[in-house]
Lab assay of single mutants.
Amino acid sequence: MSRESDVEAQQSHGSSACSQPHGSVTQSQGSSSQSQGISSSSTSTMPNSSQSSHSSSGTLSSLETVSTQELYSIPEDQEPEDQEPEEPTPAPWARLWALQDGFANLECVNDNYWFGRDKSCEYCFDEPLLKRTDKYRTYSKKHFRIFREVGPKNSYIAYIEDHSGNGTFVNTELVGKGKRRPLNNNSEIALSLSRNKVFVFFDLTVDDQSVYPKALRDEYIMSKTLGSGACGEVKLAFERKTCKKVAIKIISKRKFAIGSAREADPALNVETEIEILKKLNHPCIIKIKNFFDAEDYYIVLELMEGGELFDKVVGNKRLKEATCKLYFYQMLLAVQYLHENGIIHRDLKPENVLLSSQEEDCLIKITDFGHSKILGETSLMRTLCGTPTYLAPEVLVSVGTAGYNRAVDCWSLGVILFICLSGYPPFSEHRTQVSLKDQITSGKYNFIPEVWAEVSEKALDLVKKLLVVDPKARFTTEEALRHPWLQDEDMKRKFQDLLSEENESTALPQVL
């Protein structure tokens, strides 16, 4: 008996699950189920560990084997000379395990699969056993689809999209007709009724959600790893209520002995410091949205989908001078704002400069500016000194954290500008005749005249004003913003236009 009217009423009120309206889709043409990776026989039982391990490696599972009696060998002398080797079968990115008779397991190899009674669906509900069930008529011709799209860092995100009359449910929550939600590992998919569980979705590319604290899981769906560094790992996640993407940084307390840091400095109150950081608001710094204190720290951040500045300059790639100017102007505005709010970044580098898009002209935002507030000064500097390429001379020669101030950030900005303009770092371990530390503390950077011949004198002058060993003589952010190279009204107008595109209400910060 159909429950279409009941569920449609529920759909009209929406769902609290991570779902959002989605535009129309072009329906895929039908194809045989076997060619799409559906096993030839149905099963109602969950797999054992041996079955799972075989399939996850990209080899055929026991459900897909063919009797050897149906095959015969071709003698080598009868092999056609022009026969080309077969292409290897792509490894599946996800697996659906059937929970009921009449449904088959599915190895997801393609990027898009339609499910329903219509014969054009890649996964067609046409098993005779299924057709005899009382629920068969409640399934729509095109009930739902599972697909994946390219996300940040060229990774993939799996989604389920509801197109049914009676509802598609993920972990008992209604997706909603015309809406989608991301699928995470071990999600249970039910059709027409929330208790009519048909599939379990296994994402073969992500970790299980159960490793994360419950308070975090209640608000966010964790997904793929976006990156990792000395101070922690960053994962893509989704807000459950809105389906908006965020980035979540995970900082290990054990790695940084944060408990010991608190004992050594009783004034170090991470929760208080995070609340201060959350109040920071500038178009060129990453917004801190939320914070969870569990076995590790979880910092929920605004997501930038254009990648890191590092990706644009790695491998001796240089940027156009006009692009360097647009990016560097924004970096200076961001660091100036942090300094005005009493925050020294201490870890400025291309990896911590994020881009809003893949376009050459785009907004940038500074991230990882609050680590000293979370990890403690000593722990952070011990970590950073392991990779000193961007560290100021006074940091390398000081004991502990004494003896330096916000000028350290201006040195790091000078190193970043040098790399963007030239395509190579000013200080490098590859210069074996002088140690990296000695290069930095003496201010002897690697200047290649033929490379810098293409760079304007004004740009080079600003680099020199920032890479000054004496912090008292080094340019401040205010002085850098007043430098002739940055007195470019076309560049500032472009920045204002980019801000307006992102948010019509965002105004250009005042600069002296």
Rank of each mutant, 00 (worst) to 15 (best):
S2T: 07
S2V: 13
R3G: 13
R3H: 07
R3L: 13
S5G: 15
D6P: 12
V7R: 05
V7F: 07
A9Q: 09
A9C: 10
A9Y: 08
Q10M: 05
Q10N: 12
Q10P: 11
S12Q: 15
S12E: 13
H13K: 13
S15R: 13
S15C: 12
S16P: 11
S16N: 12
A17E: 15
C18W: 09
S19D: 10
S19Y: 03
Q20S: 07
P21M: 07
P21N: 05
H22N: 08
G23T: 04
V25K: 11
V25P: 11
V25M: 06
T26L: 11
T26W: 07
T26I: 06
T26K: 07
Q27R: 11
S28G: 11
S28R: 07
S28L: 12
S31V: 08
S32G: 12
S32N: 07
S33C: 15
S33Y: 06
S35V: 13
Q36A: 12
G37D: 09
G37Y: 14
I38T: 13
S39Y: 08
S39R: 10
S41T: 14
S41G: 11
S42H: 12
S42F: 07
T43K: 06
T43C: 15
T43I: 08
S44N: 12
S44D: 09
S44K: 04
T45C: 11
T45E: 12
M46N: 06
N48D: 13
N48F: 10
N48L: 09
N48I: 12
S49I: 11
S50G: 11
Q51Y: 14
S52D: 02
S53Q: 02
S53H: 05
S53T: 05
H54V: 11
S55C: 07
S55L: 07
S56W: 06
S56L: 04
S57H: 00
G58L: 13
G58I: 11
L60D: 15
L60G: 11
T65S: 04
S67T: 04
Q69T: 02
E70Y: 14
E70R: 03
L71H: 15
L71P: 13
Y72E: 07
Y72L: 14
Y72S: 08
S73A: 05
S73V: 12
I74R: 14
I74W: 06
P75Y: 13
P75V: 13
P75D: 14
P75Q: 09
E76F: 14
D77F: 11
D77T: 05
Q78R: 11
Q78T: 03
Q78K: 11
E79D: 15
E79Y: 13
E79G: 06
E81N: 07
D82Q: 08
Q83K: 08
P85Q: 13
P85C: 13
P85K: 02
E86Y: 15
E87H: 02
E87R: 05
P88R: 09
T89V: 06
T89R: 06
T89N: 08
T89A: 13
P90L: 10
P90C: 08
A91C: 13
A91M: 03
A91W: 15
W93L: 01
A94P: 04
A94W: 01
R95Q: 05
R95A: 02
R95P: 03
L96R: 01
L96V: 13
A98Y: 11
L99C: 15
L99Q: 08
D101K: 10
D101N: 12
D101M: 13
G102P: 14
G102Q: 12
G102T: 14
F103G: 08
F103I: 15
F103Q: 04
F103T: 04
F103S: 12
A104E: 10
A104R: 09
N105A: 08
N105I: 13
N105R: 13
N105D: 07
N105Y: 13
L106H: 08
E107D: 11
E107V: 15
C108Q: 01
N110I: 15
D111K: 09
N112M: 06
Y113A: 06
Y113L: 13
Y113E: 02
W114Y: 09
W114D: 14
W114H: 11
F115L: 08
G116T: 01
R117P: 02
R117E: 01
R117C: 01
D118A: 10
K119H: 11
K119T: 10
C121S: 10
E122A: 13
Y123A: 13
Y123R: 15
F125M: 13
F125D: 03
F125T: 00
D126P: 06
D126Q: 15
P128V: 11
P128W: 05
P128R: 05
L129K: 04
L129T: 09
L130D: 09
L130P: 06
L130V: 06
K131S: 07
R132A: 07
T133R: 04
K135P: 07
K135Y: 15
Y136P: 03
R137P: 08
T138K: 07
T138Y: 13
T138G: 05
Y139T: 00
K141R: 15
K141N: 05
K141I: 06
K142H: 04
K142L: 09
K142P: 00
H143T: 01
R145A: 02
R145E: 01
I146F: 11
I146C: 15
F147R: 11
F147V: 03
R148F: 01
E149A: 07
P152L: 14
S155T: 06
S155P: 14
Y156C: 12
Y156T: 10
I157G: 05
A158E: 04
A158T: 06
Y159E: 14
Y159V: 14
E161A: 14
E161S: 10
D162V: 03
D162N: 08
H163G: 14
H163T: 02
S164A: 05
S164T: 02
G167E: 05
T168L: 10
T168D: 01
T168Q: 02
V170A: 14
V170M: 12
N171T: 09
T172Q: 15
L174V: 10
L174M: 04
V175A: 02
V175R: 02
G176K: 09
K177Q: 09
K177S: 06
K177N: 14
G178I: 15
K179D: 05
R181L: 03
P182D: 00
N184T: 06
N184R: 03
N185Q: 14
N186I: 06
N186S: 08
N186K: 06
N186P: 12
E188L: 05
I189F: 15
S192N: 10
S194V: 09
R195W: 13
R195K: 07
V198Q: 15
V198S: 00
V198L: 02
F199S: 03
V200L: 09
V200Y: 01
F201M: 15
F202S: 08
L204V: 15
V206D: 12
D207H: 12
D207L: 02
D208Y: 08
Q209Y: 13
Q209E: 12
Q209R: 10
S210G: 01
V211M: 04
P213L: 13
P213V: 13
K214W: 10
K214M: 06
A215W: 10
L216V: 06
R217F: 05
D218N: 15
D218P: 03
E219R: 14
E219P: 13
Y220G: 02
Y220C: 09
Y220R: 01
I221M: 07
M222T: 10
M222D: 00
S223A: 05
K224L: 01
K224Y: 08
T225V: 02
L226A: 08
L226S: 02
G227L: 02
S228L: 01
S228V: 04
G229D: 06
A230T: 14
G232A: 02
G232I: 00
E233F: 05
E233W: 04
K235Y: 04
L236S: 01
L236I: 15
E239D: 06
R240N: 10
R240F: 08
R240Y: 15
K241Y: 15
T242L: 07
T242G: 15
T242Y: 01
C243V: 05
C243P: 05
C243E: 10
K244M: 13
K245D: 06
V246N: 07
V246L: 04
A247E: 02
A247L: 01
A247W: 02
A247D: 03
I248S: 08
K249S: 00
K249Y: 15
I250Y: 09
I251G: 15
S252N: 12
S252T: 12
K253D: 02
K253F: 02
K253S: 04
K255R: 02
F256V: 07
A257Y: 11
A257F: 06
I258T: 04
G259M: 09
G259W: 10
S260F: 15
S260P: 09
S260I: 09
A261L: 06
A261T: 11
R262C: 05
E263P: 15
A264D: 08
D265I: 14
D265F: 15
D265N: 15
D265K: 15
L268R: 13
L268H: 15
N269G: 10
V270L: 14
V270Y: 05
T272G: 10
